[in-house]
Design a binder for these strands. Structure first.
Lengths: 332, 332
DNA sequence: TTGTAAGCGTTATCAA
DNA sequence: TTGATAACGCTTACAA
């Protein structure tokens, strides 16, 4: 490996002068600067970021922990976050949590260990309360998603309740009266699933419709679960004319399930999703969905990391992304 | 920051002994080990990976450069690579190239600069020939995808030609005779698009069917392009009863385009894709596709990085992933 | 404007 | 079995 000393020797100056040139610091005469630059060219020198980091205590890398980038939603989110980070000169190291509490905790520990400059954590199941508040010291963590974070941590969320409520009311406006909610793993506690379910309940309530427990299907966040939920509803003889799916991914499974049963969408059953993943517009029928402003969220998250890095004492902030309901064929 | 020296002082031993304990090295007596571990607990010490790296000359991080993780295929691939890397103790930093030559070159430069231990590059457009052979010294780069890499670089590819040929023959076996190829941006040179197109041509040739240029639609690698391609074929009055799409993503667009025109799949037009992205099985109709063994590719790629790190002089290797044709409803 | 010396937190080496 | 010392490549502080 070519080091600064090598360059220095070649240019006939001291290490320090090379350092000054490399970092574009003032106080180096032009001829010397030129000589150093030539030497750098000549021997193909590259600055060792690690050594610099060792001194500075920063890495320029932020961690991103998501359940898995193989899921459309997190792929899209990851992509936007990587771009947003790039804008501010950060690189991104990805950690996959598998949507498990251990995975999410491990991600925090890892980023700490790797001395990343911060971590953006898409918390699906982790309960920050159980982590003993600010147990992470002032390591900059931004939480994405929906948990009961209290006011103790930077958080970028989206309008889960309002979004699902709007989706539910949209179905009602289209004439649906027996609306199923194909939702996630549990309705206990505070997380994406429970909040979105709450929006469904509120949407119904706003129009005086009572919740029929038979129409609420706890499944999981994958396509297969959405499909199975529809099969189960059908097998149980539960009639329904609309479905509020907890995510677009689940909605894809739901629509597939309908196809399995020979039910037409939207004629027999209307479907809405949540997230507006890239595929949503290209399905047949295209999927009506709640679209949070993901780019906005990504930029906000990186901004919060940068801000906390500058001032570790600043009070935590909470931001909620705006959303739009995008009507498409699945509810026509 | 708590350092080894702090722990050493607290435990009343030398830095070196702490290092030995932390790294689970033999030759430390049990009582001393215990004492050190207690001290570590007590002061909340964490190993500074950076300092270790500085010594080792390694970072433990490999770069992964793909066009964008928001595309299902690269999301899936990324996910598998992250897991494979984890298996071998590597972390992954992601770079997005936007499928542009500059992006791909920049990714190489960046990984160099960040002193990553290696780079796995999903090269879509970069021409290694133009890069002057081994201009990257012995920085471990593994190329994924299909380019004319010569024998000069580690490469993990897939059976693009054989796969598409099989897909084409599958359509023929199903009775299709007017088979369109909705393909990428260009058929010049050697890359995924041209190789897969070649497979299409071979598949037709094997059954004595001549290529009708009107049936070959150069589009691009996104859903919208697949949709547009179908619209264009239709507008031009070109009849077709089958479509070989260059990727599953494009195939989704194709199926959407068929729906736009009121054409039924598979009754009017049968469709095959390539990649087997997670959504393929859940579309309605589900998508017949060529499924390369992605997990195998991911593991191979990481393995090659590790091997070159161990022995920079080893000759470059080329590996081609096996594939399976998965028949589904879109060609029933 | 340039150079010297010390030190960042870790590990390899060798001596005790 | 343990410890002292010298690196790793760079930057900060200060001297020339």
């Amino acid at each position: 490996m070519v080091t600064m000393s090598d360059v220095a020797r070649l240019a006939g100056v001291s290490k320090m002068t090379v350092s000054n040139v490399v970092n574009n610091r003032p106080g180096v005469s032009d001829p010397v600067r030129r000589r150093v630059l030539e030497a750098i060219q000549e021997c193909g020198y590259r600055l060792n970021v690690n050594a610099r980091t060792l001194k500075a205590g920063r890495t320029g890398v932020i961690g991103l922990a998501v359940p898995g980038v193989d899921q459309s939603y997190y792929g899209m989110l990851g992509s936007l976050l990587i771009e947003a980070a790039k804008e501010r000169g950060f690189h991104v190291a990805i950690e996959q949590t598998g949507a498990a509490a251990e995975g999410e905790e491990a991600a925090i520990a890892q980023s700490h260990k790797l001395q990343l400059d911060g971590l953006i954590l898409s918390a699906v199941v982790l309960d920050p309360r159980e982590q003993g508040g600010t147990a992470w010291g002032d390591f900059p963590i931004v939480m994405l998603g929906e948990r009961d974070f209290g006011a103790s941590i930077d958080h970028v969320g989206m309008a889960n309740e309002a979004g699902t409520k709007a989706a539910t009311e949209h179905l009602i406006a289209r004439g649906c009266r027996r609306i199923a909610n194909v939702t996630g793993w549990s309705l206990e506690g505070v997380h994406v699933v429970s909040r979105r379910h709450r929006g469904y309940v509120e949407g119904l309530a706003a129009h005086g419709i009572e919740v029929d427990p038979a129409l609420v299907s706890l499944s999981g966040m994958h396509m297969e679960r959405g499909r199975k939920a529809v099969h189960d509803l059908h097998a149980a003889g539960t009639a329904f004319d609309g479905v509020v799916a907890v995510t677009d991914t689940v909605a894809i499974g739901v629509m597939r399930g309908l196809a399995d049963l020979g039910l037409r969408c939207p004629e027999d059953v209307r479907v809405v999703g949540f997230d507006d993943i890239p595929e949503a517009a290209y399905l047949a029928p295209s999927l009506t969905t709640v679209a949070p402003d993901h780019r906005w969220m990504a930029e906000k998250a990186v901004e919060l990391i940068a801000a906390r890095l500058d001032d570790p004492t600043r009070p935590p902030e909470e931001h909620i992304a705006p959303f739009t309901l995008i009507p498409r064929e699945s509810t026509r």
